[in-house]
Design a protein around this nucleic acid. Structure first.
Lengths: 199, 199
DNA sequence: ATGAATTCTTAACCAAGGTTAACCTGCTTT
DNA sequence: AAAGCAGGTTAACCTTGGTTAAGAATTCAT
């Protein structure tokens, strides 16, 4: 669907016009390559096996990125909210089938741009290339920290970290998904919570 | 210590001369910026709190990169062997104090180059820049796969994966470090192994 | 070669999370 | 309003890994 200027969040405009100092022409050029996709709650933006052909800015809504193991258990790698960019990182850069699913937790409005278009645009607008290189760098740091956390903390400690660092997610994310993010079963999360509330 | 041409492994020469098609001048230029560091077994190449100021090519030996949690338990992020490049990724790129330790498991010969020199060299030799960009990309993929594994597999499954994919490490890495890599205690690894050998 | 020091294994006991099933609550649907 | 459903909680039981300590096996140093 074509992007209607009125659909775009102020945050998106601030990001490019205010933050990255895009000229109006550059911004229009960018917009002309973006499509608006509406993903209803519970629907998939990407399924494992498909190729992640575009990056999407979350204009509204939130998603979960997860894998499914051999025992059919889901493991959530991360949640994404407004102002995040989503794609299956490995699939996007290799153009090989993804191993992860990206599913809308709430109705989502996504501003999408294809890898092909973005690659060209990045050559025309170096600021854009730098912006995504920065994003990539931060994403690596976040992944390494994540790995460190998963390796060194107990589920309870990870839960407490989540409460401390991202309390807002409990307003928007169902418990079962929090459990899948912590890699425990829903009854364990319930127990853990009641154990903590008694202290 | 200055790098003596005779110290360098054939693999290193093949990498740059054969693989990356460096001219002799480029190769000499690279070598002129590298230093040989000898790290004896059990000594640290990097300690948490220090800044990772250089990249090092493992000419000989192997290392472990690990963190220490609040309960003083060590968690090994990965092992590195000959022909790998080591640094604390986040610290190297941000020049902030590292949160990880890098310790020699065997006596190591490292070919080191400072971030400052490498940044300059990469401008002079674009092939070098591309080479490290590729490395970085692969490192991200590996980290994401690692995270997926840690989140979705049991220690037993991770052990079996290790046996299947990297059987050689059992020749060189003590059990206690394998346990710290799997994020279990040594007695658990022993139990797991005896359980498996009975099947 | 011998003693000392690591490293690995084993055993006993404990704690935490998995599994299953029942139950409760709040929503949707008709 | 009643039935159905999804999400969350609770309880009972089981499995697995942590903890501690003791003992066996290796390795190292002299």
């Amino acid at each position: 669907m074509e992007v209607n200027r009125s659909d775009i969040s102020q945050t998106f405009i601030d990001l490019f016009i205010g933050g990255l100092k895009f000229t109006d022409e550059e911004f229009e050029l960018l917009l002309s390559h973006m499509q608006l996709e509406l993903i209803p709650r519970k629907c998939f933006y990407l399924k494992a096996g498909n190729i992640s052909k575009q990056k999407a800015y979350i204009n509204k809504g939130c998603t979960r990125t997860f894998t499914v193991d051999e025992k059919a258990h889901e493991h959530i790698m991360f949640f994404s909210f407004e102002d995040w960019w989503i794609a299956d990182f490995e699939s996007y850069y290799t153009q090989q089938p993804a191993r992860q699913y990206i599913q809308a937790i709430e109705d989502c409005e996504l501003l999408c741009i294809s890898k092909c278009d973005l690659d060209k645009l990045e050559e025309q607008i170096p600021k854009l290339k730098l912006f995504f290189q920065e994003k990539k760098q931060k994403m690596i740091f976040a992944t390494l920290n994540n790995l460190r956390e998963v390796k060194s903390l107990t589920p309870e400690e990870r839960y407490l970290n989540l409460v401390k660092k991202h309390p807002y997610i409990f307003q928007r994310i169902p418990q079962q998904y929090i459990a899948a993010y912590l890699d425990i079963e829903p009854p364990s999360l319930s127990r853990l919570r009641s154990r903590l509330s008694k202290k």
